[in-house]
Design a protein around this nucleic acid. Structure first.
Lengths: 252, 252
DNA sequence: TGAAGATGTGTTAAAATTTTACATAGAGAA
DNA sequence: TTCTCTATGTAAAATTTTAACACATCTTCA
């Protein structure tokens, strides 16, 4: 109810660029202005709009005005990533300990994560902040050198750190995938970390939106057989799916 | 006259991201609020800023990452903290390695930090993200359990981690201070970390806005003699200042 | 199932901000 | 000088936002 209305408002704003409260009131005659205000407030908290006197404007609109290109990474394939994140979130059990990486898909997973008694490790700064919103979640940040392009950390000493930590599940994502080169990413140190994570976890779930398929990045951190579940979107090619399922890897 | 002022406002906004009319009023005491309003209006017309209730924000700020609920907290004593942060930033040399904590004052320090060849360690998630915006800065995040109230990390294994790292300078802040109880904070694990940081650094600079004075938090991590420089605001009581300077601690 | 708490909403008054309207001062031109 | 135009200041009016409370609904957990 509430969420739907908020999403509708966000959509409207994206379309129109800017809306006054009056216009919103016309669009939603069955709720009070105050409620709409509160919706706008929430959208502002989520960083999706900017409230201005009289109403609000979409962030996209602002960026259009300025002419600068938007940080494409976070807007591209949003819908697919959200769906993937939702699937991943549904797989998480109570009282579980898991690792999440620091990519954009992981960011959506953080948002979708159930607020239950879980322990989550991550190397993503933004992911950690997002997870901190959840009351019942325990969050542990992996330290290390901060990679500025994706706001993740990685460190050669992670291995030592992992000696005292345990998690059953690793939910990670890749920047690129081909059957030959496996799952790859752009930094050696990141690949090392993800390998370590894989080795530490009892099970590895890979989130991969179909736009990553056919691409190759410099450092491979996992091959097909290294993962247990592949979480992807509806555009995932049937022949590839076959390839995974043949090897008893669940594709969903 | 007018044009200069407007350009100055635009510059300020680019730096701070967001300004209230009150803050602008302070910066430009010789003109009325109305004039500043008109300036903002003009800048808006030129598409360079966005006016929001209470003031304006730079277009660049909008393009930055999502809106954290963290921002709410950071509005208390903002002006004092910014001034303190500016003083602290002015003390940082080129080619230096330093530690910054994860508090709100440190957040402002991160914003004011010169974009030079420095290596910065921090335990603040938001601080690390802010620092990542700077091209020439190397940022290392300390790992550990995430404390949700201040988005910082702390970990009992930090000691081991520090064995391989070095920094000359620690710029930290406290949640509370009294002469008897020293500098204190709200979490044991955080106090442990800060003690460690103090021990590791060649010099410790303490940022303390005057609102913290007279308060006591559960865990003391430093006493008066443990610090080298105290960075504070204009409301710092003279008798306390005397207390510090008597012991050869610089108060600024 | 029912009590306790969280969540969503509406109404109204209070607070804050912005706009409007008008007055004034100073700079430059005829 | 006097006129006019722009920049600015002041204060009231208009508008918007926030705060406070009440109430219904939905969860959840014993």
């Amino acid at each position: 109810m509430k969420r739907e209305r908020i999403e509708e408002i966000a959509e409207l704003l994206d379309k129109r660029g800017k809306l006054t409260l009056e216009q919103l009131d016309e669009q939603f005659p069955n709720v009070s202005q105050m409620t709409l205000r509160r919706d706008l407030f929430q959208l502002e908290q989520e960083g999706r709009i900017i409230r201005v006197r009289g109403g609000a404007m979409s962030v996209k609109e602002v960026q259009k005005v300025s002419g600068e290109p938007y940080t494409k990474k976070t807007t591209i394939h949003t819908d697919e990533k959200i769906k993937i994140a939702q699937k991943a979130a549904s797989l998480i059990d109570e009282n579980c300990s898991l690792f999440i990486d620091g990519g954009t898909t992981a960011m959506y997973l953080a948002k979708e994560m159930p607020d239950r008694n879980l322990h989550v490790f991550t190397n993503g700064l933004a992911v950690a902040i997002e997870l901190s919103q959840k009351k019942n979640l325990h969050v542990t940040m992996l330290g290390g050198q901060v990679m500025k392009d994706n706001l993740s950390t990685a460190s050669p000493v992670a291995k030592a750190y992992f000696d005292n930590t345990n998690f059953e599940l690793a939910i990670i994502s890749a920047s690129a995938f081909t059957p030959e080169n496996g799952f790859s990413c752009g930094a050696q140190i990141e690949a090392d970390l993800l390998k370590l994570v894989r080795a530490k976890a009892k099970a590895t779930y890979m989130m991969l939106d179909s736009s990553k398929i056919g691409k190759i990045m410099p450092y491979t951190f996992a091959h097909i057989d290294d993962i247990d579940v592949l979480i992807t979107d509806d555009n995932f090619p049937a022949d590839l799916k076959e390839l995974f399922t043949q090897r008893d890897i669940v594709v969903m």
